[in-house]
């Protein structure tokens, strides 16, 4: 008897499309794109069974740069579109991606509720603490004293802590990655995809054009010295007290995952008539 012929394993290049990114040379998002393709190769899910969903912003251009199905929707609503998609099509692998403005500002409410809902999808935020596509305004993760044209002298507003908010809101997997560590990032994304429920990966991805000082990040980023925990309280304490450059999986939990009722028909539409009948 012949052994079944196994298809050749997919390499990362099988996930990279022929379209060239419009990002600035030197942008961290190039590395993230490469990490996403490497992560998908690790997971070995065929590209046509993956959907990359995004909103608006520099990083939200990522879907078309992969050979996966892509959905490039409106600003801030990527998680909503990704949630609807995953609930309606639980068989697909759904990766939602975007930036800090898209995810934490205009899409902030969806972020909270996507964490709560814990649908099995992966959310990657390429965080550069700035709105790049509109030429350099403060985002929710921007430092309060960062001077810019829209908020001269800085916004004076505390920056947002996405990781602890994700944890408090119910995300089942919380990690921080760094664009300058593409292999490490690929590994984290692969873990995020495999982990059940809502997996959130905050990726520090420097903006060379509007935040050139972020080149320093590569000197600050360091692997997390401790192993991931499934204890949310411990994870929260670590996240709140670390230096913001602690790279790795910070929480991998076992919170109940949203279950979709899609696909298990017990009745036909005509059967529903009974309740209207007199």
């Amino acid at each position: 008897m012949n052994a079944p012929t196994l298809p050749a394993p997919l390499t990362f290049s099988a996930y990279k499309s022929a379209y060239k990114p419009i990002w600035c040379p030197g942008c961290g998002d190039y590395s993230v794109l490469s990490s996403v393709t490497k992560a998908l190769a690790k997971v070995q899910v065929p590209p046509h069974e993956v959907v990359v969903v995004s909103g608006i912003g520099c990083s939200s251009r990522i879907p078309a740069y992969t050979t996966c199905y892509g959905f490039h929707g409106v600003h801030g609503r990527a998680l909503a579109a990704g949630t609807g998609l995953k609930v309606a099509r639980p068989d697909l692998t759904v990766v939602v991606a975007g930036g800090d403005g898209d995810g934490y500002s205009i899409g902030g409410n969806h972020f909270l509720h996507a964490c709560r809902r814990n649908v099995d999808l992966t959310y990657l935020v390429m965080d550069n603490h700035v709105y790049g596509m509109t030429k350099g305004q403060a985002s929710p993760t921007t430092e309060p004293d960062w001077d810019n044209k829209l908020s001269p002298g800085g916004t004076g507003v505390r920056s947002f802590h996405p990781l602890v908010i994700a944890l408090a809101s119910g995300a089942n997997f919380v990690a921080r990655a760094f664009a300058g560590d593409p292999n490490g990032t690929a590994d984290i994304i692969a873990q995020a995809i495999r982990h059940p429920g809502f997996s959130f990966v905050e990726i520090l991805s420097p903006c060379v054009t509007f935040r050139p000082e972020q080149k320093e990040w590569k000197k600050l980023a360091h692997p997390s010295p401790v192993a991931p925990t499934d204890d949310a309280a411990r994870a929260a304490r670590r996240i709140m007290t670390d230096d913001g450059f602690n790279i790795g999986v910070l929480y991998a939990g076992d919170r109940p995952v949203y279950r979709s009722s899609t696909g298990k028909a017990k009745l036909t539409p005509a059967d529903l008539e009974a309740e209207f009948l007199l």
Binding site: G26, Y30, G180, P182, P206
Partner: peptide
């Protein structure tokens, strides 16, 4: 983070 021969991703303009 990266192999020694890899040019740093942010060193371009």
């Amino acid at each position: 983070f990266e192999a020694p021969e890899t040019a740093p991703g942010d060193e371009v303009h």
